[in-house]
Design a protein around this nucleic acid. Structure first.
Lengths: 206, 206
DNA sequence: TTTTGACTTTTAAATTAAAAAGGTCAAATA
DNA sequence: TATTTGACCTTTTTAATTTAAAAGTCAAAA
């Protein structure tokens, strides 16, 4: 693949993303994207074998950017609560910009073993890994009690994911105020939860 | 209203509930309920002016029973975490029995200012009140740091509600194992969260 | 007071037709 | 050879129409 082609691919993704972010995957057609680019619909097929692959690539771009920013935030100084709250803030900024992509996730659920779902799953796993690593670090530093990091982190992760999911499942476009309220609640939850881990040892019920 | 009629109404509700629990509101017809009772469909209209009111009364019965059991559980001895975990256990036992009613909540959402939604909202509010009362009690007893009980309880309540919502929104019938896992996670969350409130003072950001 | 038969209205499910979007390929262009 | 398009086909959505079933009414019988 020549660099020329790569540049064009990136241009296509960029253009498509603008529509995806505004209207969602379902309400964006291939021919609309082509029109935006000033090329024929069929020509798009030269660069992307089908719509799904364009959607996947676009989402992959966003997610890799997201993970990069999140990684950077985590590398900055602060204790466990600071870092987790920082992650929430990164999430909030991306959610504001790209919530349409998040909302449309259920729309794509039917595809099951989809490339797109795989990308989202991987991003989710990566976030979990990052959180777990921070939990371990905090334990080593003595910030929180030493214990199984998975057991310590899972309830929080599940809660945060579920709270996020509330917004995906309300099919109305959420307003900025209620989005902000959600993330604020998440931050409050983190503060109390992490404080709890400072003197709480989960019981070993194997 | 004569006691005779009341008894019959209760019988109808009982019979209808058996179908609602198994098939849901949407897939239970008025004539089926009538057939179960050995009366004509039109006769049902003598006791209930429409289907909605039968559904509402049935759900109200379940909810009042639920709140009664929950109240009893809370009155039993134990610290804040014990009581909250007890509440989760009550929730689990009712969810196992009546999850179909919970699942169908979205189905009824369209009715907006519905009697049924009002009943569910009231039950939800009552639970919140119970939890808040326990938070205040725990503060007075010195179990957790003194602070605004609403601010202390809200993140936990939101998290628990959202986690519950996950199951309402998966349109597949959930299996017992994953239901149990959900409630287990909720219990773990509570344990750590309450522990956190023992030495955590939420910042006053007015 | 309670029950039902005969009826109307409303809502949900199935069918079909039309339109739109997705996708292919061979030929033209550069 | 890499890129682009015209002509064409297939699949998916959407809208319109019908059909069946459930909800609901009411006067009259038990």
């Amino acid at each position: 693949m020549k660099p020329d082609t790569v540049i064009k691919e990136e241009l296509i993704i960029e253009t498509a993303l603008r529509r995806f972010v505004h209207f969602g995957f379902g309400k964006t057609t291939f021919s609309e994207i082509a029109k935006d680019l000033g090329i024929s619909q069929q020509n798009l097929y030269y660069y992307f074998p089908d719509k799904k692959s364009l959607v996947s690539k676009a989402v992959a771009n966003v997610m890799s950017c997201f993970l990069e920013v999140m990684q950077a935030k985590i590398n900055s100084t602060g204790d466990l609560a600071d870092k987790l709250v920082g992650m929430i803030e990164v999430k909030e900024s991306f959610f504001e910009k790209y919530f349409m992509l998040a909302v449309e996730r259920p729309y794509e659920v039917q595809y099951e073993r989809d490339e797109l779902l795989e990308i989202l799953r991987k991003a989710e796993n990566r976030q979990t890994e990052l959180v777990l690593a921070e939990f371990e670090r905090a334990m080593k530093k003595g910030e929180i009690k030493k214990q199984d990091p998975v057991k310590a982190a899972t309830p929080l992760l599940k809660a945060l994911t579920a709270m996020q999911g509330d917004y995906r499942n309300m099919h109305v476009v959420p307003d900025h105020k209620s989005i902000h309220a959600l993330f604020d609640t998440q931050k409050a939850l983190i503060a109390i939860y992490v404080s709890g881990l400072k003197n709480f040892q989960a019981p070993c019920n194997n």
